[in-house]
Design a protein around this nucleic acid. Sequence first.
DNA 1: CCAGCAAATGCAATCGATTGCGCTATTATA
DNA 2: TATAATAGCGCAATCGATTGCATTTGCTGG
Lengths: 382, 382
Amino acid sequence: MHLLDYFLNIHFKRFQGCFASYGFLECPMKKKEKITIHDIAMEIGVTASTVSRALNNHPRISPATKKMVLEAAKAINYKPNRIAAALRHGKSKLIGIIVPTINRNFFSSIVRGIEEYANARDYKVMISQSYDDYKKEVETIDALLDARVDGIMVSLGKNTHSFSHFESVIQKGIPLVFFDRTTDELEVNQVVIDDYSSAYQATNHLIQQGYRHIAHFTSHMKIKIYQERLRGYTQALLDNGIQFDEKMVVESNMQLDGGRTSARYLLDQGFGFDAIFSASDYAIVGALQELKKNHVKIPQEVGLIGFSNEPFTEFTEPALSTVDQKAISIGENSAALFFEMINGDHKPKPMIKKTLEANLIIRTSSSRIPNIQLNTNSTNPN
Amino acid sequence: MHLLDYFLNIHFKRFQGCFASYGFLECPMKKKEKITIHDIAMEIGVTASTVSRALNNHPRISPATKKMVLEAAKAINYKPNRIAAALRHGKSKLIGIIVPTINRNFFSSIVRGIEEYANARDYKVMISQSYDDYKKEVETIDALLDARVDGIMVSLGKNTHSFSHFESVIQKGIPLVFFDRTTDELEVNQVVIDDYSSAYQATNHLIQQGYRHIAHFTSHMKIKIYQERLRGYTQALLDNGIQFDEKMVVESNMQLDGGRTSARYLLDQGFGFDAIFSASDYAIVGALQELKKNHVKIPQEVGLIGFSNEPFTEFTEPALSTVDQKAISIGENSAALFFEMINGDHKPKPMIKKTLEANLIIRTSSSRIPNIQLNTNSTNPN
DNA sequence: CCAGCAAATGCAATCGATTGCGCTATTATA
DNA sequence: TATAATAGCGCAATCGATTGCATTTGCTGG
């Protein structure tokens, strides 16, 4: 194509665009022309190829040309069209994230970790929620595949006990990372916190505070994290010479109401518990409410400790001890894992599992023995 | 191009792809071929044009052909490539959302509302957080523009007092919707709740409960919602013959610590307040903590009411009265507004502002007068 | 002065779907 | 029966950026 033809062509196209949007007679001044590399090319008298290479810092382009291109690009306010680039080299630079719900400090912090790590590398994230619904999770995987994401990071829904929807992801060779709520039934790279160790520490802490009859709130045993927390709880009991009692392990949905019901159950059964280690902050708040309603003194009569360090644990009366899961770090590590996967040679590698250490946060609800540094919100000693 | 050529071409391409990924000798069986409309076309002996039209239910394609196409598509497991489509007709079918933080029940519920409305119409959402940081907000707008979103929905950051970053969005003709945290300095369609009315009701409720010296916690007056809430508060006082006292309006960051500080301030100044209407739930929790530390009885001595119905307001002792903002509805309405904008003729229209009614939720913290239906969590009367 | 090589660019195909226009049959109208 | 319509589909350009290969230009060395 000759230069003149090209010129005419460009302008003809613009004219059409204008026409389509505004009607023939009132095409406004502010022509919202799409600026492409061709415009830059024309501007400085090279071809689009050169512009493209210059923008991508290709070694075969002279520094002088690069400089010109960059300047021209800035001058006419060029914005690369990632969609076109995505189509060409098959990468959307999008990462799909699926979490049960974003409405949890824990998950939204993980997302934040992923987002910051990814954005710094020119990737964007698409967040979806499964609402702990299996069907929705399957649909969402499909939707992300549809959106041509370059990778998917998932925290499994509570009701996900079948994993065939991930197989298509794996077969397509799309990097997949599980975080927090994972499964062993699939060979997928994952990032988790050391649930076992955290649970052990939490339980151990209760024992050190003099509690001996410690109940445990948990959820569906299909989920790895609950298995591990139970294991840590059990081991801590054993190591301290306390008999493990199956009756003291209460299963629920781990929500507020589940916690209430579980506490109610313990009270009704008269098991004589003096502490609860819950695998969820929500459930422990429910228990707290139920116990207070029954005039049980916390932490004097019953010690409580939750899991996740949700913000509200600081607001309750008394403030709840809990386990901080370093959510942002989980997010960053998950993202890092993704980038390892796309950057390495594509040879099959053994599964990677990163396990991060969590932090026990001791507040009033589990502090029977007086302790100086318990007051978490003391900026104003009074 | 002859059919045979095309055939060879296709297979040559596949071979290359295989080669690149796995090395020559070990190209595995599971060929991860990209399936396109051309594959469907070959399968049933038509051209890609026909397939495309059939898939899009174009009227000029015979029902018989459509049926064949659909079946072939299903048979070979075809997935449309939205990126290619996006490039062609300039629509990414993506909506960008910017919220200060997703880690709030209010915002994540709005997002949920948007998401469900949009997904039902084959649109996906990209969520970004500004963290109430102006610079980050500007960058995020840019990032969304980069990602070629078809529309942007924003709740402004607390520190956003300049709005030039939205002008490029408007100029590009990209639909823009503000929700909740909006501004009047820009002619942008918006969805808000009736902050004025909600604040009026909340304040009025306190007055009806016998409180007379009502303080108000607020934040930066540049933000519309805080202006409105202050206005509602003021008007309610006036309408009840109570003198408005500027000293009783305390400004802070509206976080937990801000609430603590503000309460501390009120106590120190000895203004003799007997109630607080806070424009934020976080701040009212801070106040609650500070007051309890000083042995102030809630609600007997001081009544409290917050704003947003964050989940933890139910968990505090006593449970906090608050205003439920119908977040999901805000989300749905915002999304609906977006679709109105892209579906209508593109003629300039007057600005649309949807105002939704909020719900006053009365709990213990503001109930001085005994009332039967105050117990919010009584499934188990005991 | 010319082959030979490297550096710097250009050409044109490509990614996958869409779409204006044009080309056949087939049906309807005169 | 002949012509006009119309239905149904194909051709090829297009969206904007990328990239293998070809080409041009500039230099070096013989």
